[in-house]
Design a protein around this nucleic acid. Structure first.
Length: 411
RNA sequence: GGGCAGGUUGCCGAGUGGUCAAAGGCGGCAGACUGUAAAUCUGCUCCCUCAGGGUUCGGAGGUUCGAAUCCUCCCCUGCCCA
């Protein structure tokens, strides 16, 4: 295997990273690879209980991709073992116990999404149940003996919870060790993660060392702030942009980020060449509107291509700025044996526009509902759902549904 | 094992017999405004077609005309002691 010159490799590897521990070990590993022709093993762990990838995940995945591009071996570890255990205390909905089938399914879905970023041909994908499942209880005790309670409690999250009297399950101490065991099992040279993973990555080093394996280099990527501009991007906070979301969503959500995030997002979530970043920083200050549109376009095009990004842009202008109606939307047709006259509240809820009649009522009271562009003000209005032309119901700015009636069947 | 303090609507958190579908904050939704799905301001935020009704306050029973609030048992969490 031939690799690019080491300084070239370093330049690429170091782009955008928050921290490399320890830095000199990275150089040594690169030298060794060059000498032996053996690619470095670069590890990234993923949590199969949440298989929906978003731009936050893309930061570290793109780093993994860069390693692939210079010829190293990417290993994606699906944490199916811990996924199958779940959280025995049952208190955390973040970690529901999954069945084998679910973890496989989620692992597949994760990989499929990650393939939008990684080179799937050159990605090794492994499930950690492969080795963790076969550890005996005495193996586990031995592993647990490699770390101390005091050091465990150094982890920020544990320390905080411990001090504020929140529960910490013993098994939670075992998770970082399990993750470290993964590094031992695949003999990772490098492990990637967000800065929030620093503790876990370092445990990996410690455990490898006590197994007399050359310890991995930990590369931490910055955490991408979510669309709210405050918290880290995460699904549970609903401030995320999913990798497989439609381009219009990506575009609109990107535009909603605070202006001072524009540069950071360009840096962490896009492929714009490093040289351009400085100019972008200046542009973001000077003309935030245009720069943010460019960001939104860039992100949409990374995942959907240029044409889709163009369309997303015009869609946004039409719907949000001009208050128009989109071309594609959900459509609903009520069964022929259905009672033809239906109250507007029922209609909205059954068409999936609102989650309850109460919500529908409130929206109408707030003048937020219209039918083919005409505001609805009477909550007792009735509609014949079978006869007459199809029409569009709109709730708020961006919720639409087309109700199909007898005419123009498929439109 | 013992003692103490707790478990309230998506989250945090007030409420200790009726005036409680339950203060306040956060989040969410809508309207106005805006380059924006940002910021700001205003309204809404359990379910049921209004009046009114129905289901909620860890779980199961019970007391009472009436219980988130009192009693019993159980489950869960934290702290202290062993």
């Amino acid at each position: 295997m031939k690799f690019p010159p080491i300084d070239k490799q370093l330049a690429l590897i170091e782009r955008g990273v928050a921290e490399i521990v320890p830095e000199d070990a990275l150089v040594e590993k690169l030298r060794r690879a060059e000498k032996t022709g053996e690619p470095l093993i670069v590890k990234l762990g993923c949590d199969p209980s949440r298989p929906d990838l978003h731009l936050g995940h893309s930061v570290v995945l793109r780093k993994l991709r860069q390693f692939q591009d210079i010829g190293h071996q990417a290993v994606l570890i699906v944490g199916d073992f811990t996924g199958m255990i779940g959280d025995p205390s049952g208190r955390s909905r973040e970690r529901p116990a999954l069945t084998v089938e679910e973890t496989r399914e989620n692992g597949r879905s994760y990989f499929e999404q990650a393939s939008r970023i990684l080179d799937p041909e050159r990605t090794r994908i492994v499930y950690n149940s492969e080795w963790l499942e076969n550890l005996s209880f005495s193996d586990v005790i031995q592993l647990a003996g490699k770390y101390t309670v005091a050091r465990m409690l150094e982890r920020d999250d544990f320390e905080k919870r411990y001090k504020s009297g929140e529960p910490i399950g013993i098994h939670e101490f075992l998770y970082p060790l399990a993750q470290a065991q993964d590094s031992v099992a695949i003999r990772a040279d490098i492990e990637l993660g967000g800065t929030d993973q620093k503790f876990n990555l370092l445990v990996g080093r410690a455990v490898q060392q006590s197994e007399r394996i050359e310890p991995q280099v930990c590369i931490m990527m910055p955490i991408l702030p979510g669309t709210d501009g405050v918290e880290k991007m995460s699904k549970s906070l609903d401030n995320y942009i999913g990798i497989s979301e439609p381009p219009e969503e990506m575009y609109g959500k990107t535009l909603s980020i605070p202006d001072d995030l524009i540069y950071r997002w360009f840096e962490l979530a896009t492929n714009v060449p490093t040289e351009e970043l400085l100019a972008i920083k200046a542009a973001a200050k000077k003309e935030p509107r245009n720069t943010k549109h460019r960001l939104a376009w860039t992100i949409a095009s990374m995942y959907h291509g240029d044409d889709a990004a163009d369309q997303a842009r015009s869609h946004f202008e039409k719907i949000i700025i001009k208050g128009g109606i989109p071309e594609n939307m959900e459509s609903v047709r009520f069964a022929a044996d259905e009672e033809p006259r239906m109250g507007i509240l029922d209609l909205m809820t059954r068409a999936g526009l609102t989650s309850s009649n109460g919500e529908a009522r409130r929206l109408i009271a707030q003048h937020a509902v219209s039918m083919d562009g005409k505001k609805i003000s009477d909550v007792r209005m009735e509609v014949n759902v079978h006869t007459g032309p199809s029409f569009v119901l709109k709730a708020g700015k961006r919720r639409f549904v087309r109700i199909l009636r007898e005419e123009e069947g498929g439109s």
